[in-house]
């Protein structure tokens, strides 16, 4: 249980850093509520219904800076590959939507 909590904290750390570097900050009145709203919508969509928090297994970075860079690269890669999801009209990189889902789940926990 403790290991899970630590992992979750680290995940949130880099998700926050990644999202702050993305355009999510402009999506809603606050970074967190906007991302959470997107995450909830994503999880309730067909694309997000089977989500198994793949990011937990994706390799957690040791620092927010590394995490941010990794996140931005993943976002760009998703867009380059056409790996996008549509959440409430927004066309997002899959990793972005997953990150939002993480934040939503954490907020609900």
């Amino acid at each position: 249980m403790r290991a899970t909590k630590q992992t979750r904290r680290r995940v949130l750390q880099w998700v926050g850093a990644g999202l702050a570097a993305s355009s999510f900050g402009t999506f809603a009145p606050s970074l967190l509520s906007g991302a959470i709203a997107i995450g909830r919508a994503y999880l309730s969509s067909p694309a997000g219904a089977g989500l198994t928090l793949v990011m937990l297994r994706a390799g957690i970075a040791n620092s927010p800076v590394q995490a941010r860079d990794w996140f931005q690269r993943e976002v760009a890669r998703n867009f380059a590959d056409g790996d996008v999801v549509m959440v409430e009209g927004w066309m997002l990189a899959r990793i972005e939507a997953q990150a939002c889902a993480m934040l939503y789940l954490e907020a609900e926990a």
């Binding site: 760009a76 867009f79 066309m91």
Partner: peptide, 16 residues
């Protein structure tokens, strides 16, 4: 949407 995202220009909200 793909190109604005890939080039980090922004994100696109599409009217269905």
């Amino acid at each position: 949407a793909l190109e604005f995202g890939r080039l980090d220009i922004g994100r696109v909200n599409a009217k269905p």
